[in-house]
Write a protein that binds this DNA or RNA. Structure first.
Lengths: 191, 191
DNA sequence: CTCGAAAATCTAGCGGTGCTAGGATCGGGG
DNA sequence: CCCCGATCCTAGCACCGCTAGATTTTCGAG
């Protein structure tokens, strides 16, 4: 009597529905519009059901952030080299601003910059490192270089989207940034 | 009978009190703790009084942001050269996180990146440009270079404070960033 | 097929938010 | 002195995140 199996599946489906709906509302109207009432109504359940899946709104944001990190990691790995990486990163941020906010702007209750960070987060950072370690330059730890590179991209992404930087020249800004930061390590240009 | 003068003065005093109190609460407990009720109680007036000074919470944030921009501009001008500038910027962000948030993280209803931006905002950006125009490098518009430099600093500031970057090596990150970005324009090293 | 227990879900409500309408109170000018 | 306009407060609206407790649904045993 695998009735239990069916229930678990239905529950997992509903959890996915919650996250997809939260994400949809957030992308369309911002995270402030993702209220527990609205979210519950959209999935056609009452509010308390949300709390049987997540501890609260914060944890929903965190779950969306983890999904986003996994997707971002895949896209970053598809890029080849610092220039493509930077464009892929900013592309992601511009295309999915709500997910980007969940990851880096809002409090999703996730641990960052720590060995016990959730795997998708560490993996996304690893994807950055992989594309950058050849560009760190002599004597510069790839991790440190990646942090700086990442921070700069993050700054461009957030300031641009918040209207703090004129969007027209974002392409030139990325080009300038990457050109200056990247400093190929001499060893084995090709092997 | 300049009784009207006195009233205006009292009103201006109260407005300053509101902003100082909002700032104080925000620095101590974050902007979420700056509720209209709490703020009203602290200044020993009822909530509606706040709305006779500001349209709403957003406008209070905006007013704090303008104060902050003026202060930041002064501190940035006191710096000499890109390295000192970067440290002064990050210092400000770390010392006054709530004000920094009001300026760059929250919605204070201010116009950015526009000719009709409030003067303190444009002035703060000008202070950045003044310290950076000699480091833009050949053929690179100082404004563009400043935007990139600023965005990178902003990324470092926000990611560090949000726990996304380990705080230990922030010094090394700044050094690396500045060293790479800065590329002195050849003309007139000294004149 | 029925029935009772357990699981699942909902109703209703708590204390909080930003904001505002409308009444009370105060003080200066006629 | 008394009135009237400016000033301020009380009370309340609609919404928020979250939860206790009642209610419905579902399953499996008899």
């Amino acid at each position: 009597m695998p009735v239990q199996g069916r229930k678990e599946r239905e529950r997992a489906d509903r959890e996915r529905l919650i996250l997809a709906t939260a994400r949809e509302i957030a992308e369309q109207q911002g995270w402030d519009a993702v209220t527990t009432r609205r979210l519950a109504e959209r999935i056609e359940y009452s509010q308390p059901v949300l709390y049987s899946h997540f501890r609260g709104k914060r944890e929903i944001i965190g779950a969306v952030a983890l999904q986003g990190a996994a997707e971002m990691a895949a896209e970053l790995r598809a890029a080849d080299g610092p220039h493509a990486l930077a464009r892929a990163y900013l592309d992601f941020a511009a295309r999915s601003p709500a997910v980007y906010d969940a990851m880096f702007q809002l409090d999703g209750g996730l641990a960052f910059a720590s060995p016990d960070s959730p795997e998708p987060l560490r993996d996304a950072f690893t994807a950055l490192v992989e594309n950058l370690e050849a560009s760190a330059g002599e004597g510069v730890p790839p991790g440190l270089f990646t942090e700086v590179f990442w921070a700069a991209l993050h700054g461009l992404a957030t300031l641009t989207r918040a209207g703090r930087l004129p969007p027209e020249e974002s392409g030139r800004r990325v080009d300038l940034l990457v050109e200056r930061l990247v400093q190929p390590t001499l060893a084995r240009k090709s092997v």
